[in-house]
Design a protein around this nucleic acid. Structure first.
Lengths: 141, 141
DNA sequence: AGTTTCTAGAACTATTTAGTGATATAGTAA
DNA sequence: TTACTATATCACTAAATAGTTCTAGAAACT
């Protein structure tokens, strides 16, 4: 998992130069450590519980208790996932009195998920068409 | 992991309707099973070895042996990862004689990775700026 | 036929991690 | 102070999985 201390430790400049900010961000030119950063980011989004939390935060900041109620996850579990999301820079933490409110740190996340959703739905549609064609073939023979 | 049989089994129509193809692909409206599809997709991309394989395929189709040589992964390991990537629809399989060639099934993948890379590099840059500011504060006191 | 090469799969180990219950800590109110 | 609420963390279990070794099968060549 992408722990911030680890990121800081391993010489930020070398990473920024290979994960090169704006243009020329070609994945085939990435160093192994940049690939690890990329994999860690995807890993953060690869759990249903964390996606549920992200969804529940889409409509605004929430504290842990509210997230628990909306997602039906246990308290310790929610706290653990929120820690992972925070360390990854996906959500931001803000303490207000006893409560701790979390919010999406970067709206880019939603664009990303929407993009992937569209690609996946296209893929599923194509598969279902192929299944239909196969079943029609089966009826002919 | 997104096994194709599982996808087919669980009533494609209900998934396509919630993972709704084109517009209105709002993540906060996704059903649990659609969230699972999304999480499974990210999980496929969350391993460095698989990203390495994807990178090595960017410059064209390759067989298993070539991928092994380019990635320094073991043969059984490469085959296993390729199976996962194939089942997820990320790569396509084509047999030519004894060799089996794999290629990226959907170039959308590269756009996706580039997008995430840019976001990550921005994030890392911001972190490094904050670190600099903190260290300057430390020198003043 | 036998031999070699290429790929896939089975069985296994070691590591990671999601979830849970108990506990710790901090703010708030009586 | 005491009690209560909200969050974080620790310790643990169970499940998933990356990597490895060995084996099986299929194509090509002698």
């Amino acid at each position: 998992m992408s722990k911030l201390p680890g990121v800081m430790k391993s010489s930020l400049s070398s990473i920024t130069s290979t994960l090169n900010s704006a243009e020329d961000c070609n994945i085939s030119k990435l160093t192994p450590e940049a690939l690890t950063l990329l994999a860690d980011f995807f890993k953060v989004l690869s759990e249903v519980s964390r996606l549920q939390i992200i969804c529940s935060l889409k409509r605004g900041a929430k504290n842990v208790t509210e997230i628990m109620q909306e997602t039906d996850l246990g308290q310790a579990n929610v706290s653990k996932h929120l820690k992972i999301l925070t360390q990854a820079g996906v959500v931001a933490r803000e303490q207000r009195g006893v409560c701790v409110y979390y919010r999406i740190a970067n709206p880019f996340l939603f664009d990303l998920c929407d993009l992937v959703c569209k690609a996946l739905s296209l893929q599923v549609e194509q598969q279902s068409q192929q299944v239909q064609e196969l079943s029609q073939l089966g009826q002919k023979n």
